[in-house]
């Protein structure tokens, strides 16, 4: 009986917590479907929000997409395409570079390896503000301003956090497996591609998901480097709904667009959930 009681309590707590966590999504959904005056009021008073709008404006969502940028629909489609491209390239580059370096740090013996690893760990604590302006100057000298290159290229140089994860995970693969592959004819690159990567699926999932979410929602980077309107990403486009005094005009469109922007992140998480948890458990966290 006691078991049953405690299990019920657990369930209740979990459900309550889940409701608390999901509550903002519901709020945003409701506001996104309200009429303009109701939406404005909803952001001002507690009482003004209802469980579901009495008069749901489903058209808000299409209106929001249409209203992005100067040319109807094109603004949104451009922003969407830019976001997809930048995110895809960055995620791919990150997975490749981090798994390569992680493999080298975990399994290949070379002098200075320990030092390299320690220095890399040190950079994890680097606040990004320290390098922001110098990086911009560098990219400007290269003539890369107003292209996606400043956003994508740094991903090819690895990311300390994910390199760390890959390294921890790969270090746990039995040495014999790597030796067998080497004897079977694989050079290190072959071992990485044919043996390590297939076994590292959980860490790949984590890297991909985290990177995706960060890049998809990244605002400061595109703000600084992308100037032309047609090059903007969704995060920037969202911002164009704001006005200079931080007021809340068309807040229902803002919510609708925010939700649209969040959909890929949510989907991605749902799909990769299992791999994700597995990966977090096995490799990421020891030492």
């Amino acid at each position: 009986m006691k078991r049953r009681g405690s299990r019920l309590l657990t369930l209740a707590l979990l459900a309550a917590g889940a409701a608390l966590m999901l509550f903002p999504l519901w709020w945003m959904l409701v506001v996104s479907l309200e009429t303009p005056s109701n939406a404005g009021a909803a952001t001002v008073e507690v009482g003004a929000i209802s469980a579901f709008p009495a008069d749901p404006q489903w058209s808000n969502w299409t209106e929001a997409m249409r209203a992005v940028g100067t040319v109807e629909w094109q603004g949104f489609l451009d922003a969407l395409a830019n976001s997809i491209l930048v995110t895809f390239l960055t995620v791919t580059a990150t997975v490749f570079s981090c798994s390569l370096v992680g493999y080298a740090l975990a399994r290949v013996r070379f002098r200075g390896r320990g030092l390299l690893f320690a220095v890399m760990l040190g950079t994890m604590m680097l606040p990004p503000q320290v390098t922001m302006i110098p990086m911009f100057l560098v990219f400007r000298e290269l003539g890369w301003v107003d292209t996606i290159l400043p956003l994508v290229v740094p991903a090819f140089f690895g990311n300390a956090f994910f390199i760390f994860m890959f390294r921890q995970f790969m270090a746990q693969v039995p040495e014999a497996l790597v030796e067998a592959a080497r004897l079977d004819g694989c050079a290190h690159l072959g071992v990485w591609w044919r043996v390590m990567l297939p076994m590292c699926r959980p860490v790949i999932a984590i890297t991909a998901v985290f990177t995706f979410i960060f890049v998809w929602n990244d605002f400061l980077g595109p703000l600084i480097y992308l100037h032309s309107e047609e090059k903007a990403t969704l995060a920037i486009a969202l911002n164009s709904f704001r006005n200079q005094y931080g007021g809340l005009e068309d807040v229902q469109y803002l919510m609708a667009l925010s939700l649209i922007t969040m959909i890929p992140c949510i989907l991605l998480f749902l799909v990769a959930q299992r791999q994700f948890i597995e990966g977090l458990g096995s490799g990421a966290v020891k030492g």
Binding site: A18, P24, L254, L268, I277
Partner: peptide
């Protein structure tokens, strides 16, 4: 699990 993890993937002005 999904519900608890979801907020951390959300971001932005909204």
């Amino acid at each position: 699990r999904g519900a608890w993890y979801l907020p951390s993937v959300l971001a932005g002005v909204g």
